[in-house]
Amino acid sequence: MMQGSAFSREHPREVRPLRYAVRARAGGWSVVLNGCATRPIADRARAETLARALQAEADALRHPSLAKPS
């Protein structure tokens, strides 16, 4: 499926950055994003590794024209 618009926008809408986090949940550690969470993972280090991998993938998928200048 294609996304976008057929007309140009003077000011593209602001895209909120995705921020993955690791939180204690149900006797383990879950990777969370915007209120959604993975099933608990027993090892916190593994959950943190997963969160870093997901964050790197999300950052790489962001369209360069929508990214805020640094």
Rank of each mutant, 00 (worst) to 15 (best):
P64M: 07
F7E: 13
R44Q: 09
S65Y: 04
S70K: 11
G27D: 07
P12K: 03
P64V: 08
R9M: 10
L66V: 06
R16E: 15
A42R: 15
R23E: 13
G27P: 15
E14T: 01
A21F: 02
A21D: 09
P64R: 02
A60W: 00
D59C: 09
S8A: 15
A60G: 06
T38K: 03
R13K: 05
A51G: 06
V32D: 01
S5Y: 00
V32R: 00
H63G: 01
V32W: 00
R19A: 12
R16S: 15
G35I: 00
A6Y: 11
P64Y: 06
P17Y: 03
L50E: 09
A26P: 09
A24S: 11
Q3L: 06
A60H: 04
A58G: 11
L66G: 11
S8H: 08
T38L: 01
P69M: 10
S5V: 03
A45D: 11
S70L: 15
D59V: 10
S70I: 15
L50N: 00
M2C: 10
A58K: 02
E57R: 10
M2T: 09
R44P: 02
H63I: 01
A37Q: 13
L61C: 13
A6L: 09
N34W: 10
P12S: 05
E57H: 04
H63M: 07
V31F: 07
V31M: 07
P12W: 07
E57A: 11
A58W: 02
E48M: 01
P40L: 05
A42W: 12
T38F: 00
E48Y: 01
S5L: 03
L33P: 06
V32S: 07
R23G: 09
Q55D: 12
L61F: 05
S5H: 11
R23A: 08
A56C: 06
Q3S: 12
A53Y: 06
H63C: 02
A37H: 02
H63P: 03
H11C: 12
L18T: 14
Y20T: 03
A37E: 13
S65I: 15
L50K: 06
A67G: 07
V22D: 00
R9F: 10
P64S: 10
A37F: 02
A58V: 12
L66Y: 09
W29S: 03
P40Y: 04
W29H: 14
N34I: 00
E57C: 11
E48I: 00
V31P: 04
H63K: 01
L33T: 05
R23L: 10
Q3D: 03
A26C: 14
H63N: 09
A47V: 08
N34H: 09
E14W: 06
A60R: 15
E57T: 10
W29I: 01
I41Q: 04
R44N: 02
R16F: 14
